[in-house]
Design a protein around this nucleic acid. Structure first.
Lengths: 160, 160
DNA sequence: GCAGATGTTCTGTTTAACAGACGTTCTGCT
DNA sequence: AGCAGAACGTCTGTTAAACAGAACATCTGC
């Protein structure tokens, strides 16, 4: 219980970790974990025009994306189909199953967020989110975040 | 710029990542990175009575701690000396150099925190920290955090 | 003094990510 | 049309990090 490190960093880490843990629990056995979720989301919302576009968007290595998609495809959540305009590229589209799974996951993730934030009143929750958002925006100006996944990778080699 | 994932998780990740990055930059070439800093801090503040106590406190594997301490010792920042009461255990004590390095690091980390929080006014900064602290406390009740480092490890296998 | 427990280190295995090579397909130039 | 070079996706090999378990040294209780 001693303040091992700077209090701010420690608390931030605790909260972030709790969110990560809740998120993982919510995602459950989805192939690829949180990255599977992100791929699924992108395939529905953004209709990525190629695998490599998806890679760049999510900050995932091409070689990793390959077997990530393999797993998702094996679970019938997405399909790789050759792009009609350029047969080098594969279009990543969500199946009906994948779409259904995504709406379910969104719900669960919403609960996960609520779980982490349950220590605050509704008003505090709102101000916290607002401040966090301002902070994120400011930080993004200072040093644009390449991607959501990149963050995780950096963190892996980093500190709390 | 599309909201890939839940906004809360994304913003939290962005801010956390920014902090991590700033922290790493502040720590610089310290052997062991942020863990080196934590070990150094613990060796000064808590005077750990054994390596394994340190491991448990920081959530670092024993085998990892071994070469982490090797590196720190090689840099003359800490010393392993046999405990007078039990010669099986090694006392980890900071050298004078290590102590000086730590005060310098504390200063740099303070700047790093200020850098991340520079997007908020002093008042907002204060409320943000307070809310974060309440959140961390609450989260800790729900599911006690074993350690600061454990968080990072979990995050490595996780989401933003 | 001996059996078992504990602290630390070493070895081997596993996992994850990345760099590079390869086959396929497209684009630009002649 | 045909060819050189680039781009996309996949596969192979290498590297780094973490953990499990064995091995060694030392302590505690009987």
């Amino acid at each position: 219980m001693t303040a091992l490190e700077d209090d701010f960093g420690w608390t931030l880490g605790v909260v972030f970790r709790a969110f990560v843990k809740a998120t993982n629990a919510a995602v459950g056995d989805l192939p690829g974990g949180h990255r599977g979720y992100q791929i699924l989301t992108a395939s529905v919302r953004d209709q990525p025009e190629s695998q490599s576009a998806l890679c760049q968007q999510l900050g995932i290595d091409r070689t990793v994306m390959t077997y990530l998609l393999d797993d998702l495809e094996r679970a019938s959540l997405v399909e790789r189909r050759p792009a009609p305009t350029d047969r080098r590229t594969r279009l990543v589209v969500a199946t009906e199953t994948g779409r259904a799974r995504l709406t379910e996951l969104d719900l669960r993730l919403c609960h996960a967020e609520a779980h982490v934030l349950s220590g605050l009143s509704a008003a505090d929750r709102k101000t916290f989110k607002a401040l966090l958002c301002r902070l994120a925006g400011h930080v993004n100006e200072l040093d644009p975040v390449p991607s959501a996944c990149q963050a995780v990778q950096d963190i892996a080699a980093s500190t709390s």
